[in-house]
Design a protein around this nucleic acid. Structure first.
Length: 110
DNA sequence: CCCCTGACCTTTC
DNA sequence: CGAAAGGCCAGGG
């Protein structure tokens, strides 16, 4: 397992309840802004393992990542159970629920 | 060991 | 503002 993978797992495990993170953000947190895909890969492969709350991981738009099926349905329920509300479009309000482990970067980038 | 695929993100037209 | 193309890293065949 690569170092960044391990870090990514740690970061995701550190996401508190009622909060969500985008793949790109996790990728940046581990030091690889372009490793978003690998984060997704990790979830796809290690979902359930390492106690990773995969349901707290969404795309940059703040919507369910999985196409359709039990996964998307489960994720939505899990988030709702944690107190996360969805918009009309089925997206999530980042301003309210996105978790910022390193908000400085985001602010600095903007 | 080489090629393909993937629960993605970002920038430009 | 919406759609399209490029890039990136790692796992599996």
């Amino acid at each position: 397992m690569q170092p960044f993978t391990k870090k990514a797992i740690e970061v995701m495990k550190n996401i508190p309840e009622g909060k969500v993170m985008s793949y790109g953000q996790v990728a940046r947190s581990v030091g690889s802004p372009r490793a978003a895909r690998q984060v997704a890969r990790i979830l796809h492969s290690m979902s359930g393992a390492h106690g990773i709350p995969w349901h707290r991981i969404v795309n940059a738009k703040g919507e369910i990542v999985i196409k359709d099926g039990e996964g998307s349905y489960t994720q939505k329920l899990m988030l709702e159970e944690e107190g996360v509300c969805f918009e009309e479009d089925g997206t999530i309000s980042f301003s309210r629920y996105q978790y910022f482990p390193v908000c400085n970067e985001e602010i600095a980038r903007l």
